[in-house]
Amino acid sequence: MEKELNKLLADLVVEYHKLQSFHWYLKGYHFFDDHAKLEEYYDSVAEAVDGVAENMLKLGLKPESTMKGFLALSSIEEAKNKEVTSEEAYTEVLKDFKYLLDEVKSVKALAEKDNVYVTSNLMDDYIEMFYKANWMVGQVLKK
């Protein structure tokens, strides 16, 4: 369980920074609305980072806490230091959020198998969060 939770933690940390980068480097006509939405997303992901780490500590596990460690574990690609349009940012966000949804579902299944219900319950919150975000971002990208 520690390995899977550290992988999720790393992916969430990298996604947090990626969302923050998009928030900073956003350009274009929809800047005001999308700037605020990206901040909302990175705030939600930051809460998930803390939730996963605290869950691990409650279980007596050791959460990764270094950027080097997070980058070594994460499957999410970092953002580039460059301007992005809303469409470019949301395309990346949707890809990452779909990946994160699959990941939290896998962690939930493992937690259920191992009877770690506190972790299973926490993953339910993240499943709902990423389902909703995937739907909303998908709506933005529809042509």
Score class of each variant (00 low, 15 high):
T66E: 07
D34E: 10
N115I: 08
A72L: 10
S44V: 03
L9G: 07
L61T: 01
K108D: 08
F22N: 11
Y41V: 01
E4H: 11
P63M: 02
Y41G: 01
L100G: 01
E88K: 13
F31N: 02
F32E: 08
E54M: 01
Q139V: 15
V52N: 02
M67R: 10
W135P: 02
Y131A: 04
D50C: 08
K7D: 05
E47Q: 06
L100T: 03
Y29F: 11
D114N: 08
Y41I: 08
K7N: 10
F31A: 03
D125V: 04
D124H: 11
A79E: 07
D43H: 14
D114G: 00
W24N: 12
E112F: 13
D34T: 05
I127M: 09
A53N: 06
Y29C: 01
A79G: 07
E92M: 12
S75H: 14
K37N: 05
G60Y: 06
D102M: 00
K62I: 09
L8N: 09
N115A: 08
A48C: 07
V52W: 03
L19D: 03
A79V: 09
E54H: 13
I76H: 08
T119L: 01
K132F: 01
G28R: 14
E4R: 05
D50P: 03
D11K: 07
K62T: 14
K142Y: 12
G69D: 07
D124E: 12
S21E: 10
K37F: 09
T119A: 00
M1H: 14
N115M: 12
L110M: 15
T66N: 13
K37E: 01
A79T: 09
K143E: 15
V52G: 00
L100Q: 05
D33G: 12
K82A: 13
S65N: 13
T66F: 11
K80Q: 09
E54P: 10
H23W: 14
E2C: 05
V137A: 06
L57G: 05
E88N: 09
E47F: 05
S65Q: 11
K132C: 00
L26H: 12
L61K: 07
L94G: 13
G51H: 14
Y99L: 04
F31V: 02
V107M: 04
Y90H: 14
S44F: 05
T85V: 08
N121R: 14
Y99D: 01
S120D: 02
E103A: 07
D43S: 12
E87G: 09
K108Q: 15
Q20V: 14
H35Q: 02
D102L: 01
Y41N: 06
E4D: 03
P63C: 00
K113P: 08
Y41A: 06
L61S: 02
V49S: 06
L100D: 03
Y16F: 15
E78N: 13
K113F: 11
E15I: 12
V137L: 03
V93R: 12
L12G: 02
N55D: 00
K62G: 02
A109G: 08
Y99V: 04
H17G: 15
V140C: 07
G138P: 06
F32N: 10
K58S: 12
S65V: 11
Y42C: 05
F70Y: 15
L59C: 13
K27Q: 12
D114F: 00
Q139P: 03
H17S: 07
A10Q: 09
E15L: 14
K3F: 05
M56S: 10
E2D: 04
N55L: 05
I76R: 14
V107P: 04
A36M: 13
L110T: 15
T66Y: 15
E64D: 11
E64P: 04
